[in-house]
Simulated assay, not measured.
Amino acid sequence: MTKKTFSKTLSANDVGATGTHQSGILVPKSEKELLSFLPPLDPGVKNPDAWIECLDEGGTVRRFRFVYYNNKLHDRNGTRNEYRLTYMTSYFREMGAREGETFEISRDETEEVYIIRVVRNLAVSVESEAAQGVRIKIKSAWRCVH
């Protein structure tokens, strides 16, 4: 059995704190190991997607959409060429996820269901920082935890 875990520091956009709309969490094309951990998507198809089942920390099964927005490859005036995990907003709201906390997703290679959780950041209180008018730019890259 091989279990892999990936984590991402959540940005204000990821958790909906900016009031703007984004199409889910970015999965960079450069993150080959993460992309191979998620279901394969055919770039020959316009905007291919796969629904993934995830079990959260409270035991609730969630369905997220893994999508490759690739109209740049298929449409003359297309602009998008990016992978995203979408349909996560309600999960983050229900969990009370905040900027600076960490989202983790893991899976045993023999299982179909992914395990997800929000890891609380005990070192820095985002609310107290915001109350003081301090804004910290947080690197939001994915990383493999193993």
Rank of each mutant, 00 (worst) to 15 (best):
L122W: 05
V126I: 15
V61H: 02
A131T: 06
T20G: 15
Y68L: 08
Y91C: 00
L35D: 04
E53Y: 10
K139W: 07
K139A: 15
L41M: 00
S128D: 15
E94A: 01
S23Y: 00
K4E: 13
A97R: 08
E57I: 03
R62F: 02
T18D: 11
D49P: 00
G100P: 02
T110Y: 07
S11I: 09
I25G: 00
L38A: 08
I105S: 01
D108Q: 04
T2R: 14
V45W: 01
N77Y: 04
T5Q: 14
V27P: 06
D14N: 07
I116E: 00
F66N: 09
R135G: 07
H74G: 04
L26N: 15
E109V: 05
K46D: 06
V118L: 12
L41K: 06
T20A: 13
V119T: 09
Y114T: 09
E94N: 06
A17K: 01
I138E: 09
K8F: 02
R62M: 02
E99I: 08
E127N: 12
T9V: 14
P43E: 15
W51Q: 03
V27L: 13
K32L: 03
R76Q: 08
E82N: 06
F66R: 05
G19V: 05
L26R: 04
R117G: 07
H74E: 06
M1L: 13
P40Y: 10
F64C: 00
S7P: 01
G96S: 12
A50W: 11
D75M: 10
V119N: 07
V119L: 02
F103C: 02
Q132E: 13
T79H: 02
G58S: 13
I136D: 01
R93L: 14
E127H: 12
K8W: 01
E53V: 11
V15N: 01
K139L: 05
R117E: 09
G44T: 14
A131V: 06
Y69A: 11
I138D: 04
I52S: 01
K4D: 10
G24E: 03
H21R: 11
Y87D: 04
L55E: 05
P39M: 13
T102L: 00
A17L: 06
K137R: 13
Y91F: 05
I138N: 15
R80Y: 11
